[in-house]
């Protein structure tokens, strides 16, 4: 059975697409056949982060409207043969998405794929609602600041009430917290909410903390999911997230400020 994962947040700019790209790549690299779908119709970004923007011919809306087959629209990743990308349309708006259309696509993908990652747009409008409607698992991406936490909280309420699982009285969507852009240094001086603060407000299972890192922007610019950068903190943190999601027991990292040893102090850190 395929598992449908929605990456959502409510608020924009918290790292949904970065996360979608990273975990999709992570799952695929572990040998699971994975598809990642961009639901941000009109503001297509995932293809850039995945580095396949030049290969987009057909998109999600084309498939919904029957103008292209799913096979034609899916883009196979060049780095990992288990990973496929279904881009959003850049020229349409979100009204082109239909519940039936999405349902059909997911059903068809589920036959072939192990994991389907849905990259939700910001907001609580149609695109976001449809991205999470069919989900089995939800990765709630939150920044350690109060507006993002509040929006995530709202999103969690919607996940609990407006999904297929809730409408059919099935087992609820499994919700996981992903704290991104975390800076232990700023938490220490009180500029940022701590992991505990966020946990206290959201009471959610923490899947991982992704530290604020230059490598994320670099990865986006170069079209390489940050998880492929094994040197960077953020890449390692995402690898941990994927491992934890798949059931491995990994201690949380990057929550406390790194103590620089003498060696590091002299030679600097990357």
């Amino acid at each position: 059975m395929a598992r449908i994962i929605v990456v959502t947040s409510g608020k924009g700019g918290v790292g949904k697409t970065t996360t979608s790209a990273a975990i999709a790549m992570g799952l695929a690299k572990k040998g699971h056949k994975t598809a990642v779908i961009d639901f941000d119709v009109g503001l297509r970004n995932l293809d850039l982060i995945m580095g396949c923007e030049r290969r987009v011919i057909y998109d999600l809306i084309n498939v919904i409207n029957g103008e292209a087959s799913l096979r034609q629209a899916l883009i196979k990743d060049k780095r990992c043969n288990q990973l496929f990308i279904l881009p959003a349309s850049q020229t349409r708006d979100k009204d082109a998405l239909t519940k039936e259309g999405i349902g059909k696509i997911l059903e068809e993908l589920a036959k072939d794929f192990k994991y389907i990652v849905c990259d939700s747009p910001a907001g609580i409008e149609r695109g976001a609602n449809l991205a999470m409607y069919f989900a089995d698992d939800a990765f709630v991406v939150t920044n350690p600041e109060i507006a993002s936490v509040r929006d995530s909280d709202r999103m969690l309420g919607i996940l609990a009430s407006k999904s297929r699982r809730s409408e059919n009285d099935e087992e609820a969507i499994k919700e996981y917290l992903l704290l991104t852009r975390y800076s232990p240094k700023r938490v220490k001086i009180g500029e940022m909410l701590s992991v505990e603060d966020v946990q206290d407000i959201l009471s959610l299972h923490l899947l991982g903390v992704i530290p604020e890192s230059k490598s994320v922007l670099n990865a986006s610019n170069s079209g390489t999911p940050v998880i492929l950068n094994e040197e960077s903190n953020a890449g390692q943190a995402y690898a941990d997230v994927v491992a934890r999601y798949l059931g491995e027991d990994k201690p949380h990292r990057f929550i406390d400020e790194e103590k620089k040893g003498l060696f590091r102090k002299i030679f600097g850190s990357k």
Binding site: R150, D153, R154, G157, I158, A160, S161, S203
Partner: peptide, 20 residues
Amino acid sequence: RSGQRVYAKGDLTILSHVSA
């Protein structure tokens, strides 16, 4: 969660928190 509303005709007991 934030944005949710609950109405009980009798007593209301919530084992978890009530968000802002």
